[in-house]
């Protein structure tokens, strides 16, 4: 049966992994290639690189990072951050990325998702959705931009469905309420989106322990779980996460 996926996420600023990595066996804590290799060995199912470089002049650096990683690590690679044009997508795919994640550009121009899916195929178009809860009863979430600061008025469930209609092959769903809190995924949001769309959903935002990962699958019905800090700081290895999930009856690749 299809395995549920664990996806470590690396934030990359000007070619260097940030948020610090504390593996004892890694000499250069900021080297994306070394960290990617490490996660690959631990059994990561995919890797996601988020380019947080402020200046678009420096984006070429990310292309080189992807080229280097793709030459050594043979699992799916997704690149997000600053993907705004078909040419941005083409450059990342040519460098060796398998998927790109489109976030803000989809909000400002939903047709971009359709154009991207038609040109490159839905299988490589991930739409990243940043959502915040705006009402508890009935539960309702809205799309926010600019790191969760700017509301758009768009309903998250309807938006996810629209993105899939336009050609998104996968949804990367981040709760802006939970991101960075280590309090666990927003399971209500995850479940609402996962039940509403036909394509796989990756849960993101808020992972603080291994139970959170399992909850994202079992209660949130996510197809994959993405986490950054619990793996970066070597609190847990990907292998430990898989053992934990398997013990709760979740099918994982080991």
């Amino acid at each position: 049966m299809l395995a549920k996926r664990i996806i470590p996420c690396l934030d990359v600023d000007n070619g260097r992994v940030v948020k610090g990595v504390r593996f004892v066996d890694i000499r250069d804590a900021g080297d994306p290639v070394e960290i990617a290799r490490r996660y690959d060995r631990e059994g990561a199912d995919e890797l996601t690189f988020l380019d947080i470089t402020a200046s678009s002049d420096d984006r070429e650096t990310m292309v080189h990072v992807v080229e280097q990683v793709a030459g050594e690590v043979f699992i799916p690679l997704t690149v997000g951050g600053g993907i705004r044009t078909l040419d941005d997508i083409r450059r990342m795919l040519n460098a060796g990325a398998d998927k790109v994640s489109i976030n803000t550009a989809a909000v400002f121009n939903p047709e971009f998702v359709r154009e991207a899916a038609e040109r490159f195929g839905s299988q490589c178009i991930v739409v990243a959705i940043d959502a915040k809860q705006v009402s508890e009863d009935p539960p309702r979430w809205e799309i926010f931009t600019h790191g969760g600061r700017k509301p758009t008025g768009l309903d998250a469930v309807q938006w996810a469905q629209r993105m899939v209609e336009l050609g998104a092959g996968e949804i990367l769903l981040t709760s802006m309420d939970r991101d960075g809190t280590k309090a666990g995924f927003d399971l209500g949001l995850t479940r609402a989106i996962s039940d509403a769309v036909s394509v796989p959903v990756i849960a993101s935002g808020g992972v603080g322990n291994l139970q959170h990962l399992a909850d994202g699958i079992l209660q949130g019905r996510a197809d994959a779980v993405l986490a950054a800090s619990i793996f970066h700081f070597a609190e847990y290895s990907v292998g430990q996460a898989k053992d934990f999930m398997a013990a709760q009856g979740i099918e994982v690749r080991r």
């Binding site: 299809l2 092959g169 394509v199 994959a224």
Partner: peptide, 17 residues
């Protein structure tokens, strides 16, 4: 649907035996 009765997503995306 899978063995638990949960709907299966299309595409079939990910690792399988």
């Amino acid at each position: 649907a899978d063995a638990r009765g949960e709907p299966l997503k299309i595409p079939h995306m990910g690792w399988n035996r």
